[in-house]
Nucleic acid binder design. Structure first.
Lengths: 151, 151
DNA sequence: GGTGAAATTCGGATTGA
DNA sequence: TCAATCCGAATTTCACC
């Protein structure tokens, strides 16, 4: 039953308790309790507005695979990455490439600067490989919930 | 000035007009007008709750590069991908691999099923290459805004 | 275009059933 | 869990700067 609440929140952000209740045939207070429990359990990390990158002048999305000299410079590298706003995601990968960065920049010139100046000047970075996104078919802020459905 | 509003919305989701106004030294009505303008301009695509994948039992994140027989089966492939909840993102890439999928599944068994059964059974899929995320350092729902700051 | 105040409306907490 | 009430807060409207 709570999966329905998660779907509602994921699709609409913060809603009024009454509206949530109406969707599930619950009263307002009952809905409030459920949502608060979900927040306390840590299932809900927060709320956000979804901004449109294109409209913000961020025409270029790319992935950058970064090989890192291990493991001495790791901490400094990660600290630097967290500060860099253009880096939207950073994953530690199994396999050849240590880290994959998802970045958003205004144009290819900015991407060039990010890779050639910023990233390659970080100590421990042995090399990078950039893959450019031509178009995005799907980009969901919500993790899948269907695996919970059989409950 | 409106960049501050975007940052607020990105960090907190829907807020009360009064709270937004307080942050900028504006009155409630003035803040309301600004936000509505941002929404009408298409800068704000929507609002969402940020759910924690780990807490939802989605322990495995991975990227799957998919080579596709072009271009006959493209439309059907994309339609199928959009329906697949486990696929959180789908990008059309420049270079060797046609599409990169970001997927979230409960465990490696589910990943195996997704790749071997679901994806490879789609007509036109020539091959896949799966890269597993060991840990995620950074994952932001907000695009960078610092490139707008000089305004 | 922005401010301030007033009035109305709406949501949320509490109580009792 | 639901229903009802009360309180508080938020949004809208209006008049003014």
């Amino acid at each position: 039953m709570d999966i329905k609440i998660l779907r509602l929140l994921a699709a609409n952000g913060r809603m009024s308790w009454a509206d949530i209740g109406a969707e599930l045939g619950l009263s307002g207070p009952a809905a409030a309790e459920r949502v608060k429990k979900l927040e306390q359990l840590g299932l809900v990390r927060g709320y956000a507005a979804l901004l449109d990158p294109g409209e913000l002048g961020l025409g270029v999305t790319a992935y950058i695979a970064v090989r890192l000299d291990r493991p001495a410079h790791r901490a400094a590298f990660l600290k630097r990455i967290k500060r860099e706003e253009a880096v939207v995601e950073c994953h530690h990968m199994a396999g050849d490439d240590d880290y994959w960065l998802k970045v958003r920049v205004p144009d290819l010139r900015a991407l060039e600067i990010l890779v050639s100046d910023t990233l390659k000047s970080i100590e421990g970075v042995l090399g990078t490989r950039t893959s450019i996104v031509m178009s995005t078919v799907k980009e969901s802020a919500t993790p899948p919930l269907d695996h919970l459905e059989q409950g």
